[in-house]
Nucleic acid binder design. Structure first.
Length: 349
DNA sequence: CTACCATA
DNA sequence: TATGGTAGG
């Protein structure tokens, strides 16, 4: 999702790879849906089946959330999870399109499973991602019980996270997507995982993956763009959630050249793109990225975890193994008790 | 994705 | 102690 094409234009030279230690004492506003979808894509059995409790309710996302978050906290990285609100009306088309893609993937998955083609089935299972209200509510509940701030976005979680970072309430926005840069996050952290090793899709090869920091200013400079508006205009040519297809026949290099030469969408619409049909008024899309819905009513508070509540939720309600959870709680308690000493320097660096 | 255990 | 394979729910 998001503006994946934009990534192809961002050179490695401005991607600062770091260790977890270098993110120590930083607050990061994480796109919760982005994380949850990642967990749903990867925490599966070899045939693609998700982890579920005895009542058939999905738990993969809770497992991922629990362990990854504890790893962050043990490295004194302080996450704020930002959840999507109501999607803007303009996104309806894209939501419908994604539902269709998911349903097709589901069918394909079931078919391949019947044929006994496990590995191939898994690929389609990973595209058949869906988050139900129950799953989202469980995730929010778990995070709250862990003592972590949960922020409800007005609409786009990425937008809310970007603005939290822009206001210096967080040091960076965290997501795999690049949208938060369009929404004005001064800094984006990607690959916020612990493992370091990641399997290459469709191959039995592994590559090293480290957290990666991108500065908005570096991106603008590297692409020779004047300001964020030009970056947004570029993204619109490539395709965003509001115009998923971008402009047929215009790839990353050509789009960049057009923005550099003509300076703005307005000029392009009057000039070389005169006859292009946009699925939605591109200037409206731009305005959405410049002025997204935002919820100013949120608090950022880190508290000691409610251990009984977590056991109630994970062990009694969702059939997690009690020893494993208690082990995790031990780590969580220690990590959270170190919060006070690093409160004051969190906004700087 | 990550924890955990088997193996060297 | 480090790595690889696999279960987790």
């Amino acid at each position: 999702m998001g503006v994946t094409e934009l990534g192809k234009l961002i050179p490695d030279s401005i991607r600062k790879t770091v260790d977890f230690a270098q993110l120590s004492n930083k607050i990061i506003a994480l796109d919760a849906y982005n994380a949850l979808y990642q967990f749903l894509a990867s925490i599966r059995q070899p045939d693609g089946t998700l982890l579920m409790d005895s009542r058939g309710r999905v738990t993969s996302h809770l497992s991922g959330l629990l362990y990854r978050t504890i790893n962050l906290l043990e490295n004194r990285i302080w996450p704020i999870y930002v959840f999507d609100g109501k999607p803007p009306e303009e996104k309806t088309l894209e939501i419908v399109r994604r539902r269709r893609v998911r349903e097709e993937a589901m069918d394909k998955w079931a078919k391949l499973l019947e044929e006994g083609k496990k590995e191939e089935a898994r690929k389609y299972a990973q595209r058949a991602l869906f988050l139900t209200d129950d799953m989202v509510n469980d995730a929010k509940k778990l995070l709250s019980l862990m003592g972590l701030p949960v922020v409800q976005a007005a609409a786009d979680g990425e937008a809310q996270a970007a603005l939290i970072a822009k206001e210096n309430k967080a040091w960076a926005a965290g997501s795999q997507d690049y949208d938060s840069l369009l929404f004005g996050a001064p800094r984006l952290v990607r690959n916020l995982t612990i493992t370091g090793r990641r399997k290459l899709p469709n191959k039995d090869e592994y590559i090293e993956v480290k957290p990666e920091i991108l500065e908005l200013n570096d991106v603008l400079k590297a692409l020779k763009l004047r300001d964020r508006t030009q970056l947004i205009d570029l993204a619109i040519l490539l395709g965003t959630d509001l115009n998923p297809d971008g402009i047929p026949g215009i790839g990353p290099q050509k789009a960049l050249k057009l923005i550099q030469e003509f300076g703005s969408l307005e000029k392009l619409i009057q000039g070389p793109l005169k006859n292009v049909q946009f699925s939605m008024d591109p200037l409206k899309i731009r305005d959405y990225f410049l002025n997204p819905p935002y919820n100013p009513n949120y608090t950022i508070e880190f508290r000691q975890p409610n251990e009984k509540g977590i056991i109630e939720l994970l062990v009694y309600e969702h059939d997690f193994n009690e020893d494993r959870v208690k082990n995790a709680l031990e780590r969580l308690r220690k990590a959270m008790s170190r919060r006070r000493e690093s409160t004051l320097d969190s906004f700087f660096g």
